[in-house]
Design a protein around this nucleic acid. Structure first.
Length: 622
RNA sequence: UGGGGAAUGGUGUAACGGUAGCACGAGUGGCUCUGGACCACUUAGUCUAGGUUCGAAUCCUAGUUCCCCAGCCA
């Protein structure tokens, strides 16, 4: 993942890791002798990954890579109610696409026989540790640190107390060890209905941190699991399971987001409870001590003009407010990928925003800039006209030998190695509707009657007039004359033009559909329900975050004209069907990627991001 | 009102008792066959009030504001 698009910015976690390394806290890797740094990314397979997860992946994988450590991809799949195989597949693809690598993963170059299974190579699952977790739970019961509680869900929360009032002990708290043992075993065997009992840690019902008020460790769930099927009728809660998963894998730095800070004492309590009666050399009554990772919290990523919670993203998908998890307007990795984002751009963005403990909101233009920066360097330039207006060169031959002129065009001014291509020029062209004004605004230096501009890579043309629809007054055709001496775009007499516009030869143009995107939400903060009213019904007050969706987030242009060299534009797929669309800069317009719905003969492009538009800024100011 | 965190230009992030820096944005100019890219310059900040110190964003005290926690979700 190390590349020059993601300079490693220093942050407080580097300091912590380096302090640990200097102190020899985690020992060394046997093979390299380097201090052990072992991180992980632990998603729950209950939704698609989004750009916020990318920050975490880059952080965790980046640390492992930087310190010569290891990185695990592990599913935290402890709640079968919400989890699905589809999510497992998408998450692995996204992590792989981003560039993270883990021990045992399938090599990119190999063509696996069964991609759906092969992609899981080296991927870990918390559910694989259910047996070990169960044994440790039994151990805690035996040590008098856990008990089976018969309280209902409502009663448990009632007994918990409130933020300011202490809770009360469960009447089952002092139940005998043998009885709890028996009950827990029968819970596991499925003798009791869902919700009838739980296994709870015996800590302190008056603890000021609510997480320590005898938290539930196991609940009864007669629910088939995507991996363990019907093997279990009890499933561990996150707080119990998560730290153990990290412990089992030897994770040194368990990096998570700020809201889990309150859980750290519990995470530590569980490991300490297991280690009670254990020793480093295994001589204690309970054997050898288990590994105790260090949890470190950082601020999750928030972005303006979008939402970043899985619950809300799922709601957008389920309500049909977007076209699916990979809708190019979504902040999901699959959406960004379809939109045209590159892993490099996302990594550079993650490095750019940094890692800290302050919960702020990143301006989404930072993400867009990261993409521009990468695509500016690598995207081949092409000519495309989104809103075509016919331009006739009245002094150009209509037919015969000189009717078509093939001109050299530079593929990428940022990369000379990209070379050149030839584009056809002829009498009738299409230009961008925006590039002609019969009565130009102040400061406008494109085409208007009497003005001379350069047609990119072609000729200087001077506007001689236009044709309008008598009924509507709409301009239907612009007329120009060209200067033969300016072929290639330079005037031998040294005269200059202010404007250069793009064009497509009408006779050679390919039709394409282009989808333009704007921010998913009309306001920087979708939760902002104040102010001037709903984006959908001006004047109406938005009632919830969904009323702040941007009604203009998608604009479909069906009559676009693109240069003939784009006929073969498409997308590649790697061995695991992760798509990699061709991406181009359509000159003066922005960066565009081939959409997954694009077909030969019916090309569809997504605008990933526009070019910076200084003229729009000038025009706005008047 | 209990507990846990956090406050540095418009935004985000550095500075680890010693010149408040960087990026993005914004503004100005240069350059340009993309009103792109690039280059230069400018703008603007330590939450408040005390204290310690030769010296405080940093240490201390008090306050203010914001975030998280009362799932058998993660």
């Amino acid at each position: 993942m190390a590349d020059n698009t993601a300079p490693s910015a220093r942050h407080f976690i580097h300091d912590l890791v380096e302090a640990d390394n200097a102190a020899g806290r985690w020992g060394v890797w046997p093979d390299s002798g380097r201090p052990r740094v072992h991180t992980r990314f632990p998603p729950e397979p209950n939704g698609y990954l989004h750009i916020g997860h990318a920050k975490s992946i880059c952080l965790n994988y980046g640390l492992a890579e930087q310190y010569g450590g290891r990185f695990n991809l592990r599913f935290d799949d402890t709640n079968p109610v919400a989890e699905e195989e589809e999510y497992v597949q998408s998450i692995i693809r996204d992590v792989r696409w981003l560039g993270a690598r883990w021990p045992g993963m399938y090599d990119d170059r190999a063509r696996p026989a069964a991609p759906d299974e092969a992609i899981k190579a080296g991927v870990l699952f918390g559910s694989d540790y259910f047996g070990q977790m169960y044994d440790w739970a039994v151990e805690l019961i035996k040590k008098g640190r856990a008990y089976v509680c018969d309280l209902s869900g409502d009663q448990v929360s009632e007994y918990r107390g409130t933020l300011t009032k202490p809770g009360r002990n469960s009447p089952w708290r002092e139940r005998g060890v043998d009885e709890s043992l028996d009950l827990f075993e029968r819970m596991r065997r499925g003798e009791f209905p869902d919700g009838s009992r739980t296994l709870r840690a015996k800590i302190d019902m008056a603890h000021p941190n609510l997480n320590l008020r005898d938290p539930v460790m196991y609940r009864i769930l007669h629910q088939s699991h995507h991996r363990t099927a019907d093997a279990w009728c009890v499933y561990p809660m996150y707080d119990w399971a998560h730290g153990l998963e990290d412990s089992i894998e030897g994770i040194t730095h368990s990096i998570c987001t700020l809201e889990f800070e309150n859980h750290r004492p519990l995470y530590d309590w569980f490991i300490d409870a297991i280690n009670e009666g254990r020793t480093d050399d295994g001589s204690g009554p309970w054997g050898r001590k288990v590994h105790h990772p260090q949890q470190i919290e950082f601020a999750r990523l928030e972005l303006s003009y979008t939402v970043m919670s899985k619950r809300r993203l799922l709601e957008l998908v389920r309500d049909g407010l977007v076209r699916g998890w990979d809708d190019p307007r979504m902040p999901t990795l699959s959406g960004l990928r379809r939109r045209g984002y590159t892993p490099e751009a996302i990594r550079a963005f993650a490095a750019d925003v940094g890692v800290a403990r302050f919960n702020g909101v990143i301006d989404i233009v930072r993400l867009e800039n990261a993409l521009r920066e990468h695509l500016n360097r690598i995207a081949p330039r092409r000519l495309a006209v989104l809103r075509p207006l016919k331009l006739v060169i009245t002094n150009w031959p209509e037919s015969g030998d000189g009717a078509v002129d093939w001109l050299d065009a530079i593929n990428n001014p940022e990369d000379v190695a990209a070379g050149t291509r030839r584009i056809p020029f002829s009498r009738v062209l299409f230009i961008e509707r925006d590039d002609f004004h019969e009565n130009p605004p102040k400061g406008y230096f494109r085409l208007f009657p009497g003005n001379e501009v350069r047609l990119r890579y072609a000729y200087f043309v001077r506007c001689t007039g236009c044709v309008k629809d008598p009924a509507t007054g709409e301009v239907t055709e612009v007329h120009c004359t060209y200067d033969p001496a300016t072929r290639g775009g330079d005037a031998p007499d040294g005269r200059k033009v202010k404007g250069t516009i793009h064009w497509i030869s009408a006779a050679h143009a390919i039709d394409a559909e282009v989808r333009l995107y704007d921010h998913l939400f009309a306001r920087p903060d979708p939760d902002d329900l104040s102010l001037s009213g709903s984006a959908h019904e001006p004047g109406a007050v938005p009632k919830n975050w969904k009323d702040n969706l941007n009604p203009r987030s998608l604009e479909v242009l069906k009559n676009c004209k693109i240069e003939p060299s784009l006929v073969d534009a498409g997308m590649a797929h790697d061995a695991f069907d992760i798509p990699n669309p061709d991406r181009f800069q359509f000159e003066r317009l922005g960066y565009f990627a081939v959409d997954s719905e694009s077909r030969s003969g019916a090309l569809v492009f997504n605008r990933a991001v526009s070019l910076k538009d200084t003229w729009a800024k000038i025009a706005r100011k008047g």
